[in-house]
Design a binder for these strands. Structure first.
Lengths: 153, 153
DNA sequence: CTCCTTTAGTTGACGTGTCAACCGAAGGTA
DNA sequence: TACCTTCGGTTGACACGTCAACTAAAGGAG
């Protein structure tokens, strides 16, 4: 068994490589565009979540779930960001195990400065390159694949 | 200026987040599925390229171009793989600056063992989840975006 | 109350990837 | 010949992310 692998057809392989190559390039490019702001892409994602919360704080728990990040990834990321003064940590009164991640004034200023840059980057590289219909299709296909990922695991 | 940022519409934002979330999850999942083989995803990509070459070797140059990797990324990756005996390095006779990356017997054995695992993973997570038409659409959209990326820079 | 499992989060070691600085050879041009 | 730029590749410092081990509190079951 295992010997009878169903290899990918040339068409399947081509489509798959197109997709993976794109995502790798895109990630690098988005990160580079964000560079001038002094924020990395992970930094940006964290700050977006915190700035959308009211008040500007979230349990590590919720933050991790919203980003689909592992506990340890989040913990490391916040440690680095805390060292740079972008976020803070507070104990949770109602659950002694819990921790709130909070947005500092410096973090708020940073995300406000970076957001226009990032949006312009996303538009230039993706959103404005596709028609509305194409973008919707891309989103729908992504959702379909994601559902399967979540379902199985 | 810059103040008049064209923010993403809710539809655009939703599609964009679907796409990015998917790719993050997918990357983690593909890496995990490859785990039992002892190879990482980057390892796998390098070995695929070398095993497709005849004889089993490529100039760093070509390898980097084929993978769209930076020189330094490739150099680091090969150093680590060489230490594990998966690849070797040879001087290039015709250009004293050049280096060949070569596939060792251990590297060949590793890729032969890992390939069925990886293909099964790609099928399970992506290829077999979509219809042929959907997959082709995904590939075409990726190509379109990639063209724009290459064109601009 | 005691024990046990689950939940929340942190830490350390390690593989990965970026950037910038560097080195030596190749290939002009004067 | 000498000079100068480009090319091919390596290195070091540092940011990122995974896994596995760990601490400590919460929430049951007996």
């Amino acid at each position: 068994m295992g010997v009878d692998t169903r290899w990918l057809t040339p068409e399947e392989l081509a489509a798959w490589r197109s997709y993976t190559t794109l995502t790798e390039l895109l990630e690098v490019e988005l990160g580079r565009d964000l560079g001038p702001s002094g924020l990395s892409y992970p930094d940006y994602l964290v700050l977006v979540m915190l700035s959308e919360a009211e008040p500007h704080r979230l349990r590590m728990q919720e933050l991790g779930a919203a980003l689909s990040w592992s506990k340890s990834r989040l913990s490391h990321q916040l440690r680095r960001m805390e060292a740079r003064g972008l976020v803070g940590r507070e104990d949770c009164p109602s659950d002694a195990r819990g921790t709130y991640a909070t947005l500092t004034p410096a973090g708020l200023a940073a995300i406000r400065a970076a957001a226009p840059l990032h949006v312009a980057s996303v538009r230039r590289l993706v959103v404005d390159v596709l028609t509305g219909e194409e973008l919707a299709t891309l989103g729908a296909l992504s959702d379909k694949l994601r559902d399967r990922l979540d379902a199985r695991g």
